[in-house]
Amino acid sequence: MIQELVFLVISLFVIAGAAGVVFAQRLFHAVLSLALCLLSVAAVYITLGAEFLAVIQVLVYAGGVVVLFLFAVMLTRSDLQLRREPLESFAPVSAVLFGVLVLFYIARTGFVPQGERALAPGDVASVGQVIFSPKAYALPFELVGILLLAAMVGAIYLARRDERW
């Protein structure tokens, strides 16, 4: 009971943060809402017993990504007001309908997600085992490294001014 209550409160924060990103008038506020959303997701991870993931979430997203966003916003045009197109009337309606449909589907079946294995709280060693064992996720892990390199090369190319060669 108390668990569900905590989860509900945290979920409200997640949703409020996500809504803030979409509806904020100023870019700065949108970024702060994003931080709220990401931190609340970290809280969800803690309630699920995935402390390690929660720490990573705070370090990488709230710590790294959001701070980077804030720097970018403040260094460029902090006074930037977002011009919003008036929402097409059917867009929110279809979004809500789809959400209700998904909820209905999942509630009706009593869907219990299966996890691969339950980790003991703070069990970083077994996370490492899964990521670095060649029989498990070592290959995808290495692939992610190449993916990041490719993204970096592409981003540098696009951001570079050509004349400076």
């Binding site: 992610v144 190449i146 592409g154 981003a155």
Partner: peptide, 29 residues
């Protein structure tokens, strides 16, 4: 490279990352 890995993947995680690798590179292209 990403496409070649995707062709061999029989695991959703590998398949997804390989597809992403190939797609992200094409954004810049």
């Amino acid at each position: 490279f990403g496409m070649l890995i995707a062709s061999m993947a029989v695991d959703l995680a590998v398949l997804y990352i390989a597809v992403e690798l190939a797609t992200i590179s094409t954004f810049a292209l």
